[in-house]
Design a protein around this nucleic acid. Structure first.
Lengths: 355, 355
DNA sequence: TGTTAGCACTCCGATCTTCCGAGTGCTAAT
DNA sequence: ATTAGCACTCGGAAGATCGGAGTGCTAACA
């Protein structure tokens, strides 16, 4: 962080303090802050007129603006940015809160498939922040295959059942080129289970390609078919709109700044087109911790009045998904940031293969 | 139909016609209809004053009302009811439309699990009606078991995998009382598959209870365990909020009558608490065809300004689910009713076990 | 008896005005 | 550099006005 908030001119201690108080107050009250109020609130022994001078500077730097001549000031996107990067100090979440979250996440993780888990996690985020929660379904690439089964279907199709990691069952219909009988399929699954159970899906995928090329010469018919079948069954499923779960959108209807039905509609439509959201969230997988997009920073029009606070979550040190919270730009970042941060860790932990 | 719309006093032909024209016009334009307009629009050679007299009658009977002294009239719930039950004639859907729907439904049905199918169907309904679609996930009670497998999990738990009807795979974690090994479980599934594959889940459930009681005496250990395991694996899953899928809620934000953010919020919150919706939809499984709830008729406050047009869908003659459309009371019933009707049939057909 | 023209009346909503308070920018004094 | 003072701006709330659409009622008419 920090790189975003660089300013041409350094800001005096006092100006920074005033900006901080202004943003905090605006977040709390939702109304433009006037010089008088700010002078009083700041704790500094300073007159309104002085504050006005400072405000003029801040305005020139693009950190605040006034909605009209005779209103107070509100933070601009840059103002929020600077506030978050340099002024905000985030308290760690109270241990009690952490425990509560942990309990909820673990309960959600017990015996739900990944999609359901994402739903639950998103619901939890939404409930505790009173804004919208968003969670991507955890990637299963790096989790290990426990067992695979094939069942014949009508025509040249078969049903592949993958059991991953004790918990999750994926099933896919695959084209087989010709009809296979149950026993044949049984032999194929035996072969695959023998050779690949315990490896991660990704490893298996690589191995399959490799085996195919290396040993093509002295491969038995069975092996060949098994490998082909495995390839089809394990082919990475297409990125789906369903990989991104949003919930608690309704919460956003409570905010003044979103009381315009048209804006609201745009926003909600955005939630339906999850592909864009996915793109946005993807941008934060490289970041190590919490990443924040303020208003237009997301580069996504309908989120103009909103901020996204997001964090990747990991299993075994690998990023397998992203979660976050979407709310009005004017949100209590100091409260939301640690929540997102902790939830990401907890979700990762809950996903870790058990002992 | 019909029983709802009984009136104390019979309505003259002319009054009925005027009511019909009024409702149609109101649905089209969304604004109270005045006597002058109505006189012109009715096609009858009649003066505005006469219309006013008729209106007074209709108002007394509670079929129309005026929002305020000097506005035109709008239909009341009873007015809509009478309109739908007695005045509306529904054209069957154009063959082209039917084919389009059919194509979409069948595409959706191909290789999706029931939940996904419900989502897709709901999406289709929403898209074609430009209102919100709602679909309950089809019950699997009456579909036949194809195969069952058990895999050991850690602790006293096992994973049960049920393959139902060629297409769908359900999996559940069950408590087993003691740890079981893979071979043991294999024998148990073999036993169950041998005896029960091909029967419907419900039949199996009954048989299991029956077998348990009848043959307790001369039952082998294996049988006993297999039956107990089967019982657990097939136990009816609890009714879940997820059994009801709503989509396209956003569409509702376009309607004038729902432009109040608070109302809208209530409505959207209602969509999140699907249990109530389920209750409402359940009330229409006994009806044979399309059933309509107008505004307060649903008995569900947040739907006050909305109507629900719903129909059960069947597989093998049995109702396995309900689908419908939710929109403003002022909706084009003549268009929506056949769509819901046809979609229900098509969905049923698409769910029918293939040859 | 049912229909119609005429008329006085009501009420909504759009438009305009007024007015107050909050807040600003600027200037001059400290 | 800071402050008090002051003229000025602007938004928004609270009326005031006004036109139009539509009504109910009455009296005349077929």
């Amino acid at each position: 962080m920090g790189v975003h908030g660089e300013l041409q001119y350094p800001l005096s201690e006092r100006a920074q303090h005033l900006l901080k108080v202004l943003v905090e107050r605006y977040i709390r009250e939702g109304e433009p802050v006037g010089s008088r109020t700010l002078a009083r609130e700041s704790g500094l022994d300073i007159s309104a007129a002085t504050v006005r001078n400072v405000m003029a500077d801040l305005e020139e730097m693009g950190l605040v603006r006034s909605p009209h001549t005779s209103a107070g000031r509100v933070p601009t996107v840059r103002g929020y940015r600077f506030f978050i990067d340099s002024l905000l100090k985030v308290e760690p979440l109270a241990p009690g809160q952490v425990r509560r979250l942990q309990a909820e996440i673990e309960e959600a993780a017990a015996g739900s498939d990944p999609h359901e888990l994402a739903e639950r996690a998103s619901g939890i985020l939404s409930e505790v922040t009173r804004m919208a929660g968003v969670v991507t379904v955890p990637r299963t690439e790096f989790r290990s295959l426990r067992q695979v089964e094939f069942l014949p279907l009508s025509g040249n199709r078969a049903l592949a059942i993958l059991v991953v990691d004790e918990r999750e069952v994926q099933n896919r219909v695959i084209e087989t080129g010709r009809p296979y009988g149950a026993e044949e399929l049984q032999r194929i699954s035996n072969y695959l289970n023998e050779h690949f159970a315990g490896l991660t899906l990704e490893e298996i995928r690589n191995r399959l390609v490799q085996d195919m090329e290396e040993t093509r010469a002295h491969m038995s018919r069975l092996m060949e078919e098994a490998i082909e079948m495995g390839r089809r069954a394990l082919a990475a499923p297409p990125e789906s709109e369903e990989d991104c779960v949003v919930s608690g959108e309704t919460q956003l209807m409570g905010f003044r700044e979103l009381s315009d039905v048209d804006k609201l509609r745009q926003l909600f439509e955005a939630f339906e087109h999850k592909r864009e959201l996915l793109g946005l969230l993807d941008r934060c997988v490289r970041a190590d911790g919490v990443r924040i997009f303020i208003g237009e920073e997301s580069g996504y029009e309908p989120l103009g009045e909103c901020s996204v606070v997001s964090a990747p979550y990991r299993v075994d040190g690998r990023v397998v998904g992203v979660l976050g919270v979407i709310g009005p730009t004017r949100m209590a970042y100091d409260r939301v940031i640690p929540i997102v941060d902790v939830t990401a860790r907890l979700l990762g932990a809950a996903l870790n293969p058990r002992a």
